[in-house]
Structures are given as C-alpha cells and as structure tokens.
C-alpha cells in the first residue's frame, strides 16, 4: 500500500520564501558573530592542543599484536584477520612452533606478521574477528613514515606498540 505524505499547504508568506530566508540569515549571522567574538570554541588546535587523555577506551588507532601475561604471543596465525581485512593490509606467514618451545602445545604461530599502515583503515575488523584476542586497535593515531616500506610494520614493531593484554583466552594454559 502506498504511503502518501501530503505536501504541506504553504501560506503566501511561506511561498515568498523571504521570511524563511531572513530567518536563516539571522541564524547564520548569530553563529558568525559568536565565532567571531570567540564565544564558540569547538575546534582543537591540533599539534599544540591534544585530547589524548580523553580518548575513549574503544578508540580505534593502530592495530597491534599483544602478548599474554605469560609472555606468549597470542596470535596463532589463523589468518582470519588477513581474510577479513577490507583493504588487505595484513600479511601473515604462518609457521609451526618447534617441539621444544614452551608453548609447543599451541603448535602454530605467525613466522611473519605484517600490517601495512598505509593501507589500514582502522576499521577494527581484525580485532573483532580474532578468535585469540591477539590483535587490538591501540590509541596510537599519529602513524607516519618517510617511505612506504617504513609504514609496513613487522611483528616486532607490532608487539612493541601492542604490549601485554591480560585475561580472556585461557585455552592454551594448562587450566584449559
């Protein structure tokens, strides 16, 4: 059934547009004057002023890898993040943990894990998809480099920014 929205009947004054235009002009002029005399201050002057301490917990900055409280790298190279990443920023080379490793039980780990920060769009999909809670978007947002190669972050760098994240996955400790 069509849903018909009747056009409002306009009075003559409304049809002339002019009152509405004047009303609009008054509004914009008010904003203009308030900004001009410094009563409105919304914009932060970025490099001088920062808002870092107010960033919310869910802020989506650089994606990074984290280790758990036993210094185990959480990532098991399942490559789900590589799959889900919309701009294909992630490249993983999976590998098998050596039998003498303390975490041999986990069997699999990423030999290489690279995120191309020039590609990343900070969507957070990788964090959401990760079954091991191994990848998190941290609060670093000023990510710059002088070359493309420099912007491809390797595993070492990702762990450096990521640090340690406690709790959550208990599958690989002996409690299981």
């Amino acid at each position: 059934m069509p849903h018909i929205i009747p056009r409002p009947k306009l009075t003559f004054a409304e049809k002339m547009y002019l009152p509405a235009i004047l009303g609009g002009l008054v509004i914009t002029l008010r904003h203009f004057l308030r900004s001009l005399f410094g009563q409105t201050r919304i914009t932060l002057q970025y490099p001088e002023q920062k808002w870092d301490e107010n960033l919310p917990a869910h802020y989506r900055g650089a994606p990074t890898l984290v280790k758990d409280e036993w210094d185990r790298e959480r990532c098991v190279a399942c490559q789900l993040c590589e799959f889900i990443c919309p701009p294909r920023a992630i490249t993983i080379t999976p590998g098998e943990l050596p039998a003498d490793s303390r975490w041999a039980k986990v069997e699999k780990y990423p030999e290489q894990f690279e995120i191309d920060m020039t590609r990343c769009i900070y969507c957070g999909m990788c964090e959401e998809v990760c079954p091991e809670q191994a990848i998190f978007l941290r609060k670093d947002y000023a990510i710059t480099g002088l070359s493309r190669a420099e912007m491809v972050y390797d595993k070492k760098k990702l762990y450096e920014i990521g640090g340690v994240m406690d709790g959550l996955v208990n599958k690989w400790n002996d409690l299981k």
Binding site: A77, C78, Q79, L80, E82, F83, P94, G95, E96, E107
Partner: peptide, 9 residues
Amino acid sequence: FRFKMRVWF
C-alpha cells in the same frame, strides 16, 4: 600442507 595456508585463500 600443514600450517602453510588457510584453505579459504
């Protein structure tokens, strides 16, 4: 093939 590549790729 073990751990070389996920099949969906």
